[in-house]
Amino acid sequence: MLNATNITVELGRKRILHGVDFTAGPGEITAIVGHNGSGKTTLLRAMTGEIACGGQITLDGDDLRTLPPAALAARRAVLAQATTLAFPFTVHEVVRLGLTGQSALLPGAETLPERALHRVGLEGFGGRFFQELSGGEQQRVQLARVLVQVWQPVVDDRARWLFLDEPVASLDIGHQLQVMRLAAEFANAGGGVVAVMHDLNLTAMFARSVTLMAGGQVLAAGPVAQVFTSATLSAAYDCDLRVSTPPPGGGVFVLPQAVA
């Protein structure tokens, strides 16, 4: 269980987050959505320890800020929006960086990078230079590295966590679905996934819980069907949006052109 209570973040004199509460459970994808500058990425960075914040954050009861980096890395992996590389590593070498701690001790650990590349649809890319790939390919290589770091979603009856910052932002629709399915697989196997999302339809398809942010505060949080209502979303994004349900009784979807 990931619990963040009363999170405040200040950058310089400006307060970015005003007392945000956030909860995510294992076994499902929890999405953070909101308009540009709503503070969703800042919230994720606060919860991964990247930036200082006020408030309380616990992961399965342990205070996140007192766990040493190595212990934390064994329990959660983080995928950033984009990663630039300082030196010409090959794709294999980048993915292999995820082979730390518990993953390195698994039987057949040396084959994990290849298997992770296969899972993100980049088999055969191991020998290419990371810097020569397209943005979308680079993002999937980083996802493979992150998957290697927390290869088993559950270790010793405790869930491991994936923190994904706009994991599909630079991908085409096919790869968006592929990456979200990987995240869903991880969650279905017992792991926890927290994802900052821009695409509300993908969020509706894959996330079970969602936290909707606006202006550095939580506007609504809970099951997707409760949060994604026409009124709430229209207020959050400051534009007319209408939530509809497809005829065969599936999940909700978001369609700007449905506005009369």
């Binding site: 960075r45 991964t48 320890g49 990247e50 040493p68 980096p69 190595a70 212990a71 934390l72 890395a73 064994a74 959660r76 992996a77 983080v78 950033a80 990663t83 630039t84 590389l85 300082a86 030196f87 590593f89 980048v94 960086l97 995820g98 730390t100 701690g101 770091q149």
Partner: peptide
Amino acid sequence: ARALNAFTLGEAAAAHLGIAV
């Protein structure tokens, strides 16, 4: 060596990989 390899991805990513940056 391991820390410098992780630094290649940036300091934040190195910390996420368990490096005491």
